[in-house]
């Protein structure tokens, strides 16, 4: 069997009284983009810091490409790229020098890293600004530079801790584009508290809160985990909504019904009762029937009982 890129077993980290990471078990397949979704304080950064050997766990184990994080720190660090939550660029070095220093710390030779850095600056859209200092860059450009820095030595596993937090929507999309362009060439673990980001980028998602893993799966699998209830929206042409809302509301398979002007939202026990509804609506001036797509937000609320804290 192929080794997983990242494995954690009962990983636990306490800061004094507080358990920031609680018996965390995770397995991330090689080559996938894995999302770790959770509100602020969920323990995402703590997990990343342990996986990137910046911090030791209180108990439990973590393996990167089969290497034990406790004893093989240096080997692990030579094959991972890290984009930390805080921007850790050196503001006294130009964009290019930031990448060069990083390449040298990875023991790369100049003739090797020169071209690599040219390519990366091009890829991240920073080639024209390579001689400038990072504090003259926009937030999105700085973030891209940090990502470029994490890629200089061609890592096998890339960690991105909240790569788009604090960016405007346009810069966020640009970062997504770059992350997507890396898909398949390496394993990517990213943390986020934006549901949309996890949904857009990740093959698999783990939802966590208070240091615990709450659910894990693909976006679709997580959505399927919602209770069987499905919501349909029926839009009427002209009058009739009031009458049919009352009629449908009295049917046994309808759990809930809400009316807004000429639209009614019907919550069904299961999708199988849809045919009864359609029969009941026979001859009604229906303009449109649509299934309401559930989002990760719904999943998060149904699993944790609360909205994602921003």
């Amino acid at each position: 069997m192929q080794t997983a890129a990242i494995v954690t077993r009962s990983l636990t980290k306490s800061y004094g009284e507080l358990t920031a990471l609680d018996s965390f078990d995770l397995e991330v397949e090689q080559g996938s983009i894995f999302g770790l979704l959770g509100p602020n304080g969920a323990g995402k950064t703590t997990l990343i810091r342990i996986l990137t050997t910046l911090m030791r766990p209180s108990s439990g184990d973590a393996f990167i490409e089969g290497l034990d994080s406790r004893s093989k720190g240096r080997d692990i660090r030579s094959m991972i790229g890290v984009v930390s939550q805080e921007n850790s660029l050196d503001r006294y070095l130009t964009a290019r020098e930031n990448l060069e220093l990083h390449a040298r710390l990875h023991g790369m030779e100049k003739r090797l890293y020169k071209h690599r850095i040219d390519d990366l600056l091009e890829l991240m859209g920073l080639a024209g600004r390579q001689k400038d200092f990072p504090d003259t860059f926009s937030g999105g450009m700085q973030r891209r530079l940090v990502i470029a820095r994490a890629l200089v030595h061609q890592p096998q596993v890339l960690f991105l801790d909240e790569p788009t937090t604090g960016l405007d929507p346009q810069s966020r999309r640009a970062v997504w584009e770059y992350v997507r362009s890396l898909a398949g060439s390496m394993t990517i673990l990213l943390t986020t508290h934006y549901l949309e980001e996890a949904e857009q980028l990740c093959d698999r998602i783990a939802i966590m809160d208070h240091g615990r893993l709450i659910a894990i799966g693909s976006t679709q699998e997580l959505k399927d985990r919602l209770s069987g209830a499905t919501v349909y929206e029926v839009e009427f042409a002209g009058q009739g909504a009031d009458h049919y809302a009352a009629l449908l509301g009295s049917m046994p398979c309808v759990i809930d019904i809400k009316q807004v002007e000429n639209k009614i939202a019907i919550t069904l026990e299961c999708w199988e009762c849809l045919s009864e509804i359609v029969t009941a609506l026979n001859g009604a001036p229906v303009r449109r029937i649509s299934l309401q797509e559930r989002t990760l937000e719904d999943v998060f609320i149904s699993l944790t009982g609360q909205k994602v804290r921003e």
Partner: peptide, 12 residues
């Protein structure tokens, strides 16, 4: 600047 941290995730 957190540069020390950026050094610490390299193999030194």
């Amino acid at each position: 600047q957190f540069t020390i941290e950026s050094y610490r995730v390299t193999p030194i």
